[in-house]
């Protein structure tokens, strides 16, 4: 196997007393999607800024290589291989979308004719032809992101950094962006993606690292991460407090939620397991008002790892009854 596209050892960065990255190790094989997942303030953007040569890491960091080049020694060689789309739109709002594209072509030293062709192709591919002659400041959020990525692709970069590419986009634009990212990977490009959406990492990434407080809390494929935490559970809700109490004593190993009159029972979600729960309820003469089965998803992993269990309510994945 060749060198990884991105390899960082002991990546550290502090701003004054505040430690943002506290020894992060990463390795991203060529042609794969790597997702750095974490809550706001975890250090995702700082990691992207360092790996894309925008800011320098602390001297205490270990070796960092991007595209086979040492970050400290050859930043310009790295810049020739990467494309970066930051969290905040990196388009020139005062000029048109097409002029933005031609600016990029000129800075990549493409001959004029090639620049025009590449700009036209990318505007077409990102559905920006109608808006090409309008100032970029008039674009909607989704259009700006598309233009931003189109500009990043002008130099045909082999490694692309996308810092929260879908934050603030509506669902349709988000799906368009996912489609774009999938197409990039098909072309053999390595994508380094940060996101705070677990679904996004699950959908796109070959490997996911969960960043929390400047450290990697866990790393692996989506499946591997899901296996890190115990299985799912069944949640049963009642409207009658008496039924709720009877059910709680009939079933063992329950977690009570007095306020919602709901019980949580660990379960692998199989038919046998469900039947046994229903049988016990039946023999106790209790009728549940609602029963939902929760399989573990990245949300569970995420909250288990970042200690934010109470922050977001559970999303039922499957509803029975």
């Amino acid at each position: 196997m060749t060198d990884p596209a991105i390899a960082a050892n002991g990546l550290r960065k502090s701003y004054g007393d505040k430690v943002v990255l506290d020894g992060v190790d990463l390795s991203v094989p060529e042609g794969t999607v790597f997702s750095l997942l974490g809550p706001n303030g975890a250090g995702k953007t700082t990691a992207v800024k360092i790996l894309s040569t925008l800011v320098s890491p602390d001297p205490a960091s270990g070796e960092i290589r991007v595209g086979g080049h040492d970050l400290a020694a050859e930043p310009q060689a790295i810049r020739a291989k990467i494309g970066v789309t930051g969290q905040f739109s990196a388009v020139d709002g005062l000029i048109t979308g097409e002029e933005n594209m031609l600016l990029m072509a000129a800075l990549h030293h493409l001959p004029k004719r090639d620049g025009l062709r590449v700009a036209a192709e990318l505007l077409e591919r990102f559905d920006l032809v109608d808006a090409a002659k309008k100032p970029a400041s008039t674009y909607s959020g989704g259009m700006k992101r598309r233009l931003d990525i189109a500009m990043t692709l002008v130099g045909d970069p082999r490694i692309i950094f996308l810092d929260e590419p879908t934050t603030g986009l509506d669902p349709r634009s988000r799906h368009t962006m996912w489609q774009i990212i999938r197409e990039l990977v098909t072309g053999g490009v390595t994508v380094f993606l940060t996101t705070q959406y677990l679904e996004e990492a699950d959908q796109l990434a070959d490997r996911i690292a969960v960043l929390n407080d400047g450290r990697i809390a866990a790393q692996g494929t989506a499946e591997e991460l899901k296996r890190l935490i115990p299985g799912g559970h069944v949640r049963i809700r009642f409207s009658d407090p008496t039924a709720y109490r009877n059910a709680a004593s009939a079933l063992r190993e329950v977690t009570r939620d007095e306020e919602a009159l709901a019980l949580q029972i660990p379960s692998d979600g199989t038919q046998r397991d469900l039947r046994s729960i229903l049988d016990r309820l039946h023999s106790a003469g209790v009728e549940a008002d609602e029963l939902t089965v929760h399989t573990p998803d990245l949300d569970d992993v995420f909250f288990a790892l970042t200690g934010g269990t109470a922050a977001v309510p559970d999303q039922p994945k499957e509803i029975v009854g």
Binding site: A90, L107, G155
Partner: peptide
């Protein structure tokens, strides 16, 4: 103050 400057800084120019 614009993102474009970050783009310029990460390009081989």
């Amino acid at each position: 103050n614009e993102g474009i400057i970050a783009r310029f800084r990460t390009m081989a120019i």
